[in-house]
């Protein structure tokens, strides 16, 4: 929200003034600064009673949350998920599963009441249903023209991120799904004249999503899918709704970004086929090393396996100081010329 409201630079500057390095992730810088000045679009988050984090998609979060736990003087629980190069070893499963028991003890102690197993089942089912619906919404963009773009998905994503496990998510995505199916039936595309279908990789460049969507639309290119929004429903296959606790460990651990590059490339290739992709747009995100490392390898694998071109945009998800418009523009224009030249043949 801070990034999309273009409030990131000010908060990053505040964090840097506090002594944090400009090389630190801009989410961490924004959040740490935001807490001290009640900044951002909603004047800061409410004061927490406790903090919980998981390192399955982020290493920075460990120190970031330690900083915040010290600042707010609240207890912190860290769920540690080992990296899964291939498969999911038994030791890893036991290790993560045991931490879930510790997590319950932490929550019981901090909240001062016992865990309610029935409530867990209820919330778990709602969470899974929300993920299914979100995936169904994303699936609609396999149609030509795509009824919505990745830029729309970046927006609608808010609910699966912040309200997962509630009824609201299900209501919202059910309605969104009906709307998208209706657009498909009427042949209504996200952009006026969809000719080229692209896939986005990495976290959005939040302060520049509008500019980027207009830029691509001016080339009749629609970003029909992305590796980011689909990550919120990417581990459903590991979840057993009759055995939430055990399967939860696996679902959290085997998420996109906590798996080997070959595994990630495999998922990207599946998306290329499913959504009939003509080119990949990769955001090399200065803030996010786990997401950006390996992009060159994935690029090479895609080029070899499917022969489609890819573009690398060097930027940052929140810190606009890392975005050079005219340089990005030339790269997008050149990339689109290459795609047009190839498709025209």
């Amino acid at each position: 929200m801070i990034g999309a409201s273009k409030m990131g630079v000010g908060l990053c500057e505040t964090a840097e003034g506090m002594g944090y390095s400009p090389d630190l992730c801009s989410y961490a810088r924004s959040d740490i600064a935001c807490a001290t000045v009640n900044g951002g679009p909603i004047g800061g988050l409410p004061r927490p009673d406790m903090l919980v984090c998981c390192n399955n998609i982020c290493g920075t979060v460990l120190k970031w949350y330690e900083v915040q736990a010290r600042y707010f003087k609240v207890p912190l629980f860290i769920l540690d998920t080992p990296f899964c190069h291939v498969g999911f070893a038994d030791e890893a499963k036991r290790y993560v599963r045991r931490q879930l028991d510790e997590y319950i003890l932490f929550l019981e102690k901090t909240c001062g009441r016992k865990m309610d197993n029935n409530r867990l089942k209820e919330v778990g089912k709602l969470s899974l249903e929300g993920q299914r619906l979100w995936q169904a919404v994303l699936n609609t963009t396999a149609n030509r023209p795509a009824p919505m773009s990745a830029f729309d998905a970046f927006f609608h994503l808010a609910l699966i991120v912040t309200l997962r496990g509630t009824r609201d998510v299900i209501d919202y995505y059910s309605q969104l799904l009906i709307k998208m199916k209706d657009r498909v039936a009427r042949g209504k595309g996200a952009i006026p004249n969809e000719k080229y279908r692209l896939l986005w990789d990495n976290i959005p460049i939040w302060p520049r999503t509008r500019w980027l969507s207009q830029k691509f639309a001016s080339h009749d290119a629609c970003l029909v899918a992305d590796t980011y929004t689909s990550a919120w429903c990417g581990t459903m296959k590991y979840i057993d709704e009759n055995n939430f606790f055990d399967s939860m460990a696996e679902a959290y651990t085997r998420i996109y970004l906590n798996i080997g590059i070959d595994e990630m490339a495999k998922q990207v290739l599946e998306m290329i086929d499913k959504y009939q992709i003509d080119g990949i747009v990769m955001h090399s995100n200065r803030s996010c090393k786990p997401y950006s490392i390996g992009q060159y390898d994935i690029q090479k694998i895609i080029e070899k396996e499917r022969g489609i071109p890819s573009l690398m945009i060097e930027a940052d998800m929140v810190d606009e100081r890392s975005f050079a418009e005219s340089q990005v523009e030339t790269r997008i224009d050149a990339f689109m010329e290459v795609i047009k030249q190839r498709k025209g043949r």
Binding site: S322, A324, V338
Partner: peptide, 11 residues
């Protein structure tokens, strides 16, 4: 003379 692939310098 059609472009197969290209790389530009970073910022």
């Amino acid at each position: 003379g059609n472009v197969g692939n290209f790389v530009m310098n970073d910022k």
